[in-house]
């Protein structure tokens, strides 16, 4: 890793394409390199804990550190006595590889029950020290949250696509993120559940850009899924783990202009 450069990467894609599996494994393998990693989960039906090996999947930032925001500002803000560092310290869960995991809570009923926690989560993401943490984020399946800018903390957005027509549809729409005013600096195509190299070619051809990383379909991972065991614990040296390592290397090797680091 060159200098103090920290990664800011988010994963998007159709539901079931493997975003949580890849993002969680990405975070863990990066942490195993001795790096400080903050995993950001904005999925109200979170899947990242399964891949991270974090037991708790329902740990929103509690309502009592969230107060009404100032006139004309966000509706809810963190209690001024509590900053981003303090929230991470107190409320982020710690995974087996030392990954800190911050989520905005689980959806049980109407989404409004998460409003305070979501505002607080967003504020932490805006205010977190970019030189201190690598940020690895997981968005909900589909296109909606991504289109509303929930991945804007990331300068690299990985579009996860499996070789199915529906997943390709979602990926093609997600590439429209490149037209957003807050467009990420890099949109990286990650092909998942690949059984044949020809599928990687086909995905690249359909999406009109090269596939940066191809991760294999691994039966062991599907078994782990059924048992609730994280991919890295099922097959720590498998082709999937090696593929995610290569993806980390790829994201690290991308070019980031200095101004991308400045807060907007």
């Amino acid at each position: 890793m060159t200098g103090s450069r920290r990664l800011r990467v988010a994963f998007v894609g159709k539901g079931g394409s493997g975003k949580s599996t890849i993002s969680g494994s990405f975070a863990r393998l990066l942490a195993r390199r001795g790096e400080p990693v903050l995993a950001l989960d904005s999925d109200p039906l979170p899947g990242m804990p399964y891949a991270l090996g974090v037991a708790i999947d329902d740990g929103p930032i509690p309502d009592d550190v969230v107060v009404e925001g100032p006139e004309g500002g966000p509706r809810w803000v963190l209690d001024p006595r509590c900053d981003a560092d303090a929230v991470i310290e107190q409320y982020a869960a710690t995974g087996p590889d030392g990954v800190k995991y911050l989520q905005f809570g689980n959806l049980w009923g109407h989404a409004s029950t998460l409003q305070r926690a979501q505002h607080a989560w967003s504020q932490v993401v805006r205010e977190v020290d970019p030189d201190r943490w690598h940020l690895v984020g997981d968005l909900p399946g589909g296109t909606r949250q991504a289109m509303f800018g929930w991945a804007r903390y990331a300068d690299t957005v990985c579009v996860v696509v499996e070789p199915t027509a529906k997943s390709l549809h979602a990926a093609a729409r997600l590439l429209n993120l490149s037209t957003a005013t807050w467009a990420p600096h890099h949109l990286v195509i990650v092909a998942n559940k690949v059984t044949d190299p020809a599928e990687i070619e086909a995905i690249g051809a359909r999406l009109g850009r090269p596939v940066a990383s191809g991760l294999p379909l691994d039966a062991a991972l599907a078994d782990g899924d059924r048992l609730g065991t994280a991919p890295l614990d099922v097959a720590p040296n498998g082709a999937f783990a090696h593929g995610v390592e290569a993806l980390i290397d790829h994201v690290e090797s991308l070019d980031y202009p200095r101004d991308m680091r400045e807060p907007s």
Partner: peptide
């Protein structure tokens, strides 16, 4: 919000 029911219904891409 990412509609693709048409594929499985058989109306084509």
């Amino acid at each position: 919000t990412n509609p693709n029911l048409g594929l499985s219904l058989g109306v084509g891409d």
